[in-house]
Design a protein around this nucleic acid. Structure first.
Lengths: 133, 133
DNA sequence: CGGCATCCAGTGTGATACTG
DNA sequence: CAGTATCACACTGGATGCCG
């Protein structure tokens, strides 16, 4: 599972499978891109962009290219004017989506947990006030 | 699941839970740290360091502090000389490990998949040679 | 041992402008 | 529409040295 001798794949170096995973889907935007493509199926460039309001054109292009060379994303170009390019997950890419979904769910859980903590603190404070008064 | 209005938590901004997840465990080394702590339970600073041969002290310290403030990692300082500091996952941190393990497993799967592809290509090439000869 | 402070190079990332 | 090109910069992350 985590025996860690130096390994190679496609010019990458890594000590355990986790590092390999990170090199492929560990980019700042990649999990997000995969998540949205997994949910929506197929999206055009600008559709995808709108789902991530703060990403720049450049970053989106770049990250998509990397995902493409790693066999995660499929890029379909329609030779027409104006241009139309559709992005979707490959079969290999679809194998990541369950894990990505888990990450997303964990985020929701974390959010709820943190909010609950805050409310407990607030309740504690008002209780303190009462007992002080 | 992915309705995306701007949200706030602990000074963070995000549009969907996935982004929140990324802000917490999306650091370059964080999933790796969590993975190792999840497997080993409790580790001292340098023990943890040895599991990731290429990380620097500075980065390890920094990432651990961030994980600590986000409630994922617990830091236990033993006031003695030489100093002894042990790191472990909090209850909240332990909720991430299943997902992290999935990521690791996916990496193994990806690795196997890629190697199989290469062998297929190689087999294809030798077949081409034979049919050309 | 487990840090922290400082300095510094590299590059990741963003803003802007331009193109087929 | 879906990019590419260029510039500028912030920040990451590495090396080193010092401290409790």
């Amino acid at each position: 599972m985590s025996e860690c001798g130096l390994k190679h794949l496609d010019g990458r170096e890594y000590y355990c499978a986790m590092e390999l995973t990170l090199q492929i889907i560990g980019g700042k935007w990649k999990p997000l891109i995969i998540h949205h493509l997994g949910q929506q199926g197929t999206l055009r460039f600008n559709e995808l962009r709108r789902t991530m309001p703060t990403i720049t054109q450049k970053m989106l292009t770049q990250q998509l290219r990397e995902l493409e060379t790693d066999g995660i994303v499929h890029r379909e170009v329609y030779p027409q004017v104006p241009p139309k390019v559709e992005y979707s997950l490959t079969a290999l890419g679809r194998t990541v989506t369950p894990v990505i979904s888990r990450l997303c769910e964990w985020g929701s859980m974390y959010e709820a947990e943190r909010l609950a903590e805050k409310q407990n603190e607030a309740a504690q404070h008002s209780a303190d006030k009462k007992s002080a008064a």
